[in-house]
Every structure is written in structure tokens, then in C-alpha cells.
Amino acid sequence: MSRIENFYHRGVVTVMLIILLSPLVATLIYAFSSQWGSTILPEGFTLKWMTELLQDPRFLIALEHSLIICFGALALSVVLVLPLMFVIAYYFPRLDSVMNILILLPFAVPPVVSSVGLLQLYSDGPLALTGTPWILIGCYFTIALPFIYRAITNNMQAIHLRDLMDAAQLLGASTWKAAILVVLPNLRKGCMIALLLSFSFLIGEFVFANLLVGNRFETLQVYLYNLRNGSGHLTSALVISYFLVVLLLTLAANTVNKDKD
């Protein structure tokens, strides 16, 4: 690669990073600014808004609710989907093309339409789940399914699942023993990527949370929506806190991965 090409590629990457990070940096500055309206730069900086947010019990409860729902949906996804994916990849590989179509169905129906249908189904009767976290866990499970299935399927193809299983069985391992002790550890990175992608998407989901649960089980995005008429500084502090939670979980997951490697 010539010097001119290298400079061009670095320039394109730098411009893209500036475009992507500028809104986040501006939000961060606004969250810590005491006043920013009449001038190009903030007139001062303060921790007032972040302190006020962290001392708000509603914020802490909303964060707890969001984490409970996201972790519950992801745990349910892994427990149900991972064995199914192994069975399909090992015993019925021809069904992979069918699954690739089925996992896209959650994105084929708009969330508003899905919410209306779910409200009609679960507002009364034996399964009156509207207004409870259980209906959100079920919805988030369907949303996370495409991310989890695609990431883990790619990981299974990369480790050559059938060759790995045949080698383990030649050494005397049963099918399920080989799946748990040989295949599962090799899927760790794929599972981690799938969970992080799903979590970063689910914790920002608003439509299902607002229409199906609303203030009865307030999540971060519903709490943010309820602050729309309040201080913009406080709202910016909440957005930064949201990104900080995702960043901390990503760093923790990467640290665990490195330690196991």
C-alpha cells in the first residue's frame, strides 16, 4: 500500500469516527454543562445533573427493571435456542435455510402492530400478562433471537462442528458429552458477541416497553420518555448513563474472555 493510499484510508476512517462520535461527545458535554445555549461553547461545567440523576430513586428502579428484563430474555434465549441450534447444525443442516427465514419474522412485523396484537391477546383471560415484566421478556426473546442465532451459527461454521464432534466421538465421548465439553467451550466467543449485540439493542427498546408495560414496570427508555418535558441536561445525563452501562458490560465481557483465553 502506497503512502497516498494509506493516508486516504486513515482519512476516511477518521472522518467516519468523527461523524459517529460527535453526537455522543456533544451529549456528554451538555450533560456536564451548567449552561449552554447562547454561546458556541458551554459557559461552565457542573456535576449537578449527573448527581441529581444518580440520586433519583426512579432512575435506579428503571435501571434495575431494564437489567432484569434484558438478562431474563437473554438467559431464556440461550437456554432455548442453543440446544436447538446444535440439533439443527448437527442432525438437520438442511433446515438452516428455513431457520434463516423464520428468525427474520420478528423484524417483518412493525413493533406497533405486534404490540396491538399482544394487547388483545394478553390483556385478560388466563394469561393476563399486560403490564408485567413477563410479557416484555417474551417480546425481547423474539427480538434477540435473530442476533443470537446468526452469531452462534457463524461460530459453529467456523469451528467445523461436525469434524469436531466426530473427533470427540472417536475418543469415546457420547454425543451430548462432546457437545457440552468440546463444542460449547468453542462457542464462548460467539455467544458473548451475540449476547452483547442483543443487550445493546434490547436495553434501548422503547415501543414494546411503553405500549405493553408503560409506567407499571418502568424501564430506562420509558423513564427517558417521561423526562421529555424536563431539563435537557438531565436527559443528556441519562443518555450518557445508558451508554456507560453498555460500555461497562462490554469491557467486563471482554475481560472475562481474555482471562479464559
Rank of each mutant, 00 (worst) to 15 (best):
A158W: 09
T175K: 14
P93S: 12
D163K: 12
P93T: 13
S174R: 10
W176I: 08
S174H: 09
Y90N: 14
M156F: 05
P146V: 07
Y149Q: 04
S115L: 01
M192S: 15
C139L: 07
F92G: 04
Y91A: 04
V112W: 10
F92Q: 09
G125A: 06
L161R: 03
L95R: 08
S198C: 11
N100I: 07
F199N: 02
Q169K: 11
Y90L: 14
Q169N: 05
V183N: 06
F92H: 15
V98W: 08
D96P: 01
L161C: 01
L195A: 08
A151H: 12
N154H: 08
P185W: 15
V112G: 00
M192A: 15
L184E: 04
V182K: 10
A151Y: 13
G172W: 02
L129F: 15
P133Y: 15
D163W: 12
M165R: 12
L187T: 12
Y140W: 11
L181V: 14
W176K: 07
G138K: 02
R94P: 10
V116Q: 08
A108L: 03
V116N: 05
L195C: 07
V109G: 00
M192P: 03
A194H: 07
V116D: 00
A89T: 15
Y90C: 06
D163G: 09
P93V: 02
I143G: 00
P111C: 01
I137E: 02
P111N: 06
M165K: 07
F201E: 11
L197W: 09
L136W: 12
T175A: 12
N100Q: 14
M165W: 09
L119V: 10
Y149V: 03
N154Y: 09
I148Y: 14
D163V: 02
A178F: 13
L127C: 06
A178K: 10
G172V: 03
V183W: 10
A108K: 05
P133A: 13
L121I: 15
L121D: 08
D166P: 02
V98H: 08
M165N: 09
S123W: 14
P185T: 05
L164T: 10
I101S: 03
F141A: 00
Y91S: 07
A144H: 09
V182N: 02
T142A: 00
G138S: 04
L164H: 06
V116P: 05
A168E: 05
L170M: 13
S114L: 11
S115C: 01
L197C: 06
V116R: 05
I152S: 04
L102D: 02
A151D: 14
C139R: 11
L119R: 13
N155L: 00
N155S: 13
K189Q: 11
